[in-house]
Amino acid sequence: MGGRRTGQILLMLAGLIAWAVQFTAIYGVTSTLCGRGWADANLLGLEVVPMTILSATLVTLAATAVALIWSFRNYRLAKHQPVAAVDDFVSHAAVLINGLSIVVILWHGIPAFILPACA
């Protein structure tokens, strides 16, 4: 599998990989800070647990949005040029997967607005 193919697959899975990164980050940080009682620490007057969740969400959301725009462009290009069916398929799947990932990543940011950090 050449570099171009690997790139296509990575772009197709980008949103879900971003979700995996977000998930690992928010769960890992919350567990560590709460487990060790470090959650009371403040970052510039903001609570550290919700701030971590929000920043991880925003970063991964931005990455997924970039992947979505990029894959959408590929998909549109594929519509106007004669490309192999498999490329059309992969670029379309990339749009769908990255689109769904946006929703999933957003959902994982919601708890920061509702729940207390460690109770």
Binding site: I110, I114, L115
Partner: peptide, 10 residues
Amino acid sequence: LLPYGLTVMR
């Protein structure tokens, strides 16, 4: 459902 569930949880 998700925010409602989280609120009940809180």
